[in-house]
Amino acid sequence: MSYLTFDRIRNYSNTLGRAFTQNEHAKKYTKKTPVFLSYWHEDQELIKAVIGFLAQFGRSVHIDWLPNQIPRTTNATTAISIKEKIMASTKFIVLATPNSIESKWIPWELGIADGKKGLNSIAILPIVQSSTIWQEKEYYGIYNVIEEQVAGQWTVVSPNGGNRALRTWLEG
């Protein structure tokens, strides 16, 4: 078992990420409901790479800073829009980086997803320095985690035991 590292995710940005610019990405996968990606805005440089990573599994990703999504200044209207996007998505993924604990929105978004989607539709995607070390938040322990079980085989690991291929989980 290993986690996605900063070095590996940057490779997705350099390869798959280039192939899936936001417009190409949106056009290619408009037939599928997008995954909602909850992330800390200071981690925006990783987002294109995460889009590339998830695109290899045939899924588009809702990113709130794409054109016409979320205004720069947030307010109650912003919260309503985000909540609607979470509700419209089939899956919810939290991008967990060492600094994402600073986000005020991630816990709120996760709470919405937890209450409306249930645990089976939520997964944590850790991005770490070392592939075997992740300092998770205590409440992340109740959610699925995206891990690489065997080289190139990404799975969603349930805290209750059991694994599902990431592609299968995203489609279900």
Rank of each mutant, 00 (worst) to 15 (best):
N11F: 03
A165E: 10
P71Q: 12
Y39N: 00
P159T: 01
I51S: 06
T74M: 11
H41K: 09
N11P: 00
I86H: 01
I142G: 10
Y12W: 01
S121L: 09
K83G: 09
Y140V: 07
N14A: 08
I86S: 01
I133P: 15
T73A: 11
F36Q: 03
I9H: 01
E138D: 14
P98D: 02
L37I: 01
M87E: 11
T90Y: 10
I101V: 12
Q44N: 13
N14Q: 06
N99S: 10
T33R: 11
T90C: 08
P67S: 07
H25Q: 08
S121C: 13
N75K: 12
I127M: 09
S121A: 14
I47P: 00
N68E: 15
W65N: 11
Y143W: 09
T77S: 15
L95N: 04
I51G: 04
K85A: 13
Q44K: 13
A96H: 03
Q22Y: 12
I124F: 04
P107Q: 00
R72Q: 15
I9Y: 00
E171P: 02
G118E: 07
G52H: 02
W154A: 05
E84M: 04
S131T: 13
K116V: 10
W108A: 01
I133T: 15
A96E: 05
L170D: 03
D7P: 06
R59W: 02
Q69R: 15
T155C: 14
W169D: 01
K137A: 13
G111E: 05
E24P: 00
N160S: 10
L66E: 14
N163D: 06
N160W: 05
Q149R: 07
A113H: 03
L95M: 05
Q129N: 15
R59A: 09
T21C: 07
N144A: 06
L4P: 00
D43Q: 06
I133A: 15
V128S: 05
V35I: 07
F36E: 00
S2P: 00
K28H: 08
A165F: 10
F6A: 07
N11M: 04
S131C: 15
Q44I: 15
S100M: 05
A49H: 03
D43I: 09
S121F: 12
S60Y: 06
N23M: 08
K48S: 14
G152N: 09
T168A: 11
T97Y: 10
Y3D: 00
G152E: 10
P67H: 07
V128Y: 06
A113L: 02
N144Q: 11
A151L: 08
S38E: 01
N120S: 14
T132V: 14
V61T: 05
Q56A: 13
T73R: 13
N14V: 02
N99W: 04
S60N: 13
F92C: 03
L16N: 07
T73I: 15
V157D: 00
L46N: 04
S100Y: 01
A123S: 09
T97M: 03
T78M: 04
L125K: 02
S13Y: 05
Q22A: 14
K32W: 06
G161A: 02
P71D: 13
K116G: 04
T132C: 12
T21F: 09
S130M: 14
S158T: 06
I112Q: 08
I127G: 06
G118M: 03
S13E: 01
N144H: 12
Q153T: 10
Q135I: 13
T77M: 15
L119W: 01
I122S: 00
T132N: 15
G141T: 12
A88R: 08
N75T: 14
